[in-house]
């Protein structure tokens, strides 16, 4: 989900003098000790959160040095031998890595084509309902799967589409061909997209519904009076009003293209095999945490992290250039 900052720093706007030490703070900015003392309580409140980020994000990030070492658990992280870029060379020369990259991009592309438009369509359908009670009911039901874990979602799909599941029972009773969906590598990628649609298409409507709600009702009215039918109103009023948000979400999704449902893939990797289900993140898990090749796994993970950060950064710049609000300040 994209995150936008409010205003640049929140510092502007303190109108007039008052008892507020914060507006006085601007004048006294030179004196750091004064500001430190004034903000002591706030800094104390912030301390646990800041400590968390320092330890569990930056502390962990420092562990990426392992990607440049030949890690021997017995020697520990710091005593292990430096090996330069040889872990990265191993990753980039590894067919399994490129296979995982191709799988990742392929699944991301399928989701972009087949998942991305669904919440937009559903939001328009919901928005067009004139009866509030119906709309609210459908919304409540459609948001729900978003809050279920991937474990539950995958289990539900097994129950419905599995070999002995609901669908095959119905088909069998009707003496029709049963389908082989779960555990079938050929059907895996469509299955993955279907799962994402089931879990998140309802939740995804929220942002589009909000955009639709902001369209000035008078625009529709004016268009209708000018003789535009429902289809032309959709084309000339609704779509243009959704355009900025669609473009923004699309760009952000492209920036995040190297991450496609790690938990979802890992849960089903055993049943369809790595050929169909291996993505970059599951490869990192397999090589590092299962096989114990920490150097290789950390290098692959770091490679993904750096490329991913560059992509998100670039996507944000593009979004800014198009005049939309970016993800961060």
């Amino acid at each position: 989900m994209a995150i936008a900052e409010r205003d640049a720093t929140g510092r502007t706007g303190a109108a007039g003098a008052s008892a507020d030490p914060r507006s006085a703070g601007r004048a006294a900015r030179g004196s750091r000790r004064k500001r430190l003392r004034r903000d002591a309580v706030l800094l104390l409140l912030a301390a646990p959160g800041v400590a968390y980020f320092v330890v569990f994000h930056y502390g962990a990030m420092a562990g990426n040095v392992i990607a440049f070492k030949d890690y021997v658990p017995f020697d520990g992280l710091w005593a292990s031998q430096w090996v330069g870029l040889s872990n990265f060379q191993a990753v980039l020369a590894d067919d399994a890595f490129w296979h995982a990259v191709v799988n990742t991009l392929w699944i991301a592309l399928l989701q972009l084509v087949f998942f991305f438009p669904v919440p937009i369509a559903l939001a328009m359908l919901l928005h067009s309902l004139t009866r509030d009670s119906v709309r609210r009911f459908v919304q409540s039901v459609a948001y729900l799967p978003h809050f279920l874990s991937w474990v539950i979602v995958v289990a539900v799909f097994q129950q419905v589409l599995g070999e002995a599941g609901l669908l095959n029972n119905v088909l069998g009773d009707a003496h029709l061909h049963t389908v082989d969906v779960i555990g079938n590598p050929a059907a895996f990628k469509p299955l993955v997209v279907a799962q994402v649609i089931w879990k998140d298409c309802g939740w995804g409507t929220i942002i589009f519904l909000a955009a639709l709600a902001q369209v000035d009702e008078q625009q529709y009215e004016a268009a209708a009076i000018d003789g535009a039918g429902p289809w032309r109103r959709f084309w000339h009023v609704t779509l243009p009003s959704l355009r900025p948000i669609i473009v923004l979400l699309l760009i952000m999704r492209l920036g995040d293209i190297l991450s496609v449902g790690f938990e979802q893939m890992l849960l089903q990797r055993a049943s369809v095999g790595p050929d169909a289900a291996e993505i970059i993140d599951t490869l990192v898990w397999q090589r590092g945490l299962v096989q114990g090749d920490y150097g290789y796994a950390a290098a692959a993970g770091l490679f993904k992290g750096v490329v991913g950060a560059v992509l998100v950064f670039a996507a944000n710049k593009v979004a800014h250039r198009l005049g939309e609000q970016g993800v961060y300040a």
């Binding site: 962990a60 392992i66 993140d281 898990w285 590092g288 796994a297």
Partner: peptide
């Protein structure tokens, strides 16, 4: 940290 998450292996080692 939003732009650059720490990664699975470094988190595990930490």
């Amino acid at each position: 940290t939003f732009l650059f998450p720490p990664g699975m292996i470094p988190s595990f080692l930490l």
